[in-house]
Design a binder for these strands. Structure first.
Lengths: 250, 250
DNA sequence: CGTTCCCTTGACCGTGGTCAAGTGCAGTGG
DNA sequence: CCACTGCACTTGACCACGGTCAAGGGAACG
């Protein structure tokens, strides 16, 4: 019995979808919420984190307009956050990968300002915001970390505003590739070979481009030998060149 | 002596640039930080707020890259927040009017991600962030209000992302006019007649348009009888029509 | 194995950017 | 008081990037 139980635990550590994981043993603790917390504080955080079953592709973690209750940490898989304009067009406001926190746009109005949809089978940790507030009142580290998280989202959104208002199609696509590559590196995955979990349409709706333009830019990059792309699998062949393009030099 | 002092106090109430005002008697208390606080909590906030001399046009409240210490409430006048791209172009990330809080983009990295420049003679309240954190630890209202403020900035930035990625030049300009009009209304100023404190260039750098396009759209709106515009003085003649355009209906 | 959706590619077009010239207002100095 | 300078804004002519429309191919799902 004991042996079986131990085996189960060991399996947990290897299966990122498994719910029987906690913040202390989660391999994302170095980049996720626990980042700024002491060991005993992480234990307290752990007690309020709810880990549900994995979400299938296209399922939502929350939807635009829903009453805000929780923020969510991505444990495995990936999400897009998007809102729908008056004319029914979709604006993707961000992509979320493991260790990243989504749903913070709901705090201000007590309802989510965007929807979060799984781009593939994904697992999330739900963290009720009322508990975060309560915990933040007691743990200055927690409060500070959350202020920082919110502020960083602002900074990222403002960078994206700049991207949308100043950059060409090629610069936008290059920036996204560099960004995903860097986030993979942070999770100790290959920064040069990865699978894009989102569709061309999602990319377009994120970058302010049409699906056709995204496709054309990928083709052009491939023709120039900067990347290899086969459907959703990308290899970045010339990182410096892409960075050069993304940094809008010239 | 006493009479003189009383006279001074009375003048304070009428001159928005004057520093001898506190959060309790400030006529912006209904829309500024005190919004969510109890009377005795406002007194505590008041103790940490620093009120300096007015800033002249073109002076900065803080600069991109400066070490982050404080957030700022605009007391009078107006500001633009902007950052400079690698290629030296300016991206205006927001305009700030009395009662609004700026500088929150500095929390995450401990340095300001943008610069805040006065568009006219303006007064600000400086609020050291360390004191806000300390106060937030003690006053749940304060913590909650700050979480909300940060979140609302995220939501606004995401709306602006949508504007930049989906809307035409006319929709962008109409949106800005409607936004300024609404913020004026909140401060009990005329929503139909006001002076634009920022230049055409600032507007362009905010809306992702060139100065020429901004100018052309203003001219077109005037020709259509939607607005009257003479230099920086605008009269909105047909609010519904502008709202209609801004809402990207057709 | 078939249907459907996603993606690619091509031809054409339009919005807004670029370049350039001109106007008018503000501030300065004679 | 007016002339001079300079900057902000306006307006026009032209152009290019990316959007639109259309057709066809190929992967993924049932």
């Amino acid at each position: 019995m004991i042996a079986t139980s131990e085996k189960t635990v060991r399996e947990d550590k290897h299966c990122p979808h498994n719910a029987a994981i906690n913040c202390t043993n989660c391999r994302l603790s170095g980049i996720c919420l626990p980042l700024a917390l002491e060991q005993d504080e992480i234990v307290q955080l752990d007690e309020i984190v709810q880990r549900g079953r994995p979400l299938q592709k296209r399922q939502h973690a929350y939807r635009e307009g829903d009453t805000f209750t929780s923020v969510f940490a991505v444990r495995s898989g990936s999400f897009k956050a998007y809102s729908v304009t008056d004319t029914g067009e979709e604006q993707v406001t961000g992509f979320y990968f493991p260790g990243e926190i989504m749903g913070m746009d709901g705090i201000g109005q007590n309802r989510y300002a965007s929807s979060a949809q799984a781009l593939e089978t994904s697992a999330i940790c739900e963290i009720p915001f009322s508990r975060i507030q309560e915990l933040s009142g007691r743990l200055p580290n927690m409060q500070g970390h959350f202020f920082r998280l919110l502020s960083q989202e602002i900074v990222e959104d403002q960078r994206h505003m700049t991207l949308l208002s100043k950059n060409t199609a090629e610069q936008r696509v290059a920036s996204l590739l560099i960004s995903i590559s860097a986030r993979n590196a942070r999770r100790k995955l290959s920064p040069n070979r990865f699978r894009l979990p989102m569709s061309r349409g999602d990319i377009g709706h994120f970058l302010g481009l049409t699906i056709e333009t995204v496709s054309r830019v990928f083709s052009r990059f491939a023709k120039q030998g900067l990347i290899e792309i086969e459907n959703k699998d990308v290899s970045i062949l010339d990182v410096p060149a892409l960075q050069h393009i993304a940094a809008q030099e010239d």
